[in-house]
Design a protein around this nucleic acid. Structure first.
Lengths: 132, 132
DNA sequence: AAGATATTTAAAATATATTTGAAATGAAAA
DNA sequence: TTTTCATTTCAAATATATTTTAAATATCTT
């Protein structure tokens, strides 16, 4: 997934004086990008974002956000969540699975029941993401 | 989108002593949910999460995160971004559109060029969401 | 053991999001 | 004023995510 940029290889015969080194297009005269800045930009763009994105994806769903908000108040078993969310078990289970895989929630078994609770990681996430 | 819960209407003939009021299933004996807690849970679950989720969705994509990271370093025109991301204009444009619609970025026109920059809102978001 | 309950899993159906490629737009240069 | 350039828009193709329904598990109760 890590991309290596070789912009120089793409430079066309660009005649503009304001063209940034390694950038084939003629960038507008109103702003200049120093080679140093461009280097920094390339660096941050090369950083791996897959963890960040995976976390965001797990959160980016109304059902899942509501589940997290609920679990922030109390640990809840699936049967109670099903009633609160007014949905099928299988549907709820799918979303619980997504949250679990993302490490945001966990469950403990009590006989037939599974009681879900926020992980510390999940707690932190929803706090920093401003979900209350 | 706001759902109203009427759990009482759903109570079946539940015989378990540990059943929470208004919850048809027999919740496990290892934990009790007080009616007050349950009320609080219902309240937070009824809150509207659509803005939260829309914001998260806009962020939950590797390309978009990389764009935001880049714009955090410098304002960039589309032609430069195209090179840095190594992708088609139309593809980039789609993602820029998503970020723009979410209010995370804006652009200013300079002749033929569009120079994109983070909004203050976008700046705040990516900071609080731990995207650096 | 047999039946009931709570929950998950699997597979198909559906919905949503992204990518692609071509055409459209609008400003600048020739 | 025709051409070129930077960019967006559109529609079709593709990919990904979610929902649905039925069946599978596992634990309890009898």
């Amino acid at each position: 997934m890590v991309q290596v940029f070789d912009l120089k290889a793409k430079v066309k015969n660009s005649r503009s004086a304001s063209c940034s080194p390694g950038i084939p297009c003629k960038i507008p005269p109103s702003y200049e990008i120093s080679p140093e800045t461009l280097e920094t930009v390339k660096e941050v763009m090369d950083e791996d974002v897959s963890d960040t994105v995976a976390g965001l994806k797990a959160l980016a769903d109304p059902m899942r956000v509501r589940i997290l908000k609920a679990l922030r108040i109390a640990d809840l078993c699936v049967c109670v969540l099903v009633e609160l969310m007014d949905c099928e078990y299988s549907k709820l289970s799918y979303h619980l699975g997504v949250l679990k895989k993302a490490g945001l929630i966990e469950c403990t078994q009590d006989g037939n029941f599974l009681i879900y609770h926020l992980t510390e990681f999940g707690e932190k996430k929803i706090t920093s993401f401003g979900i209350f």
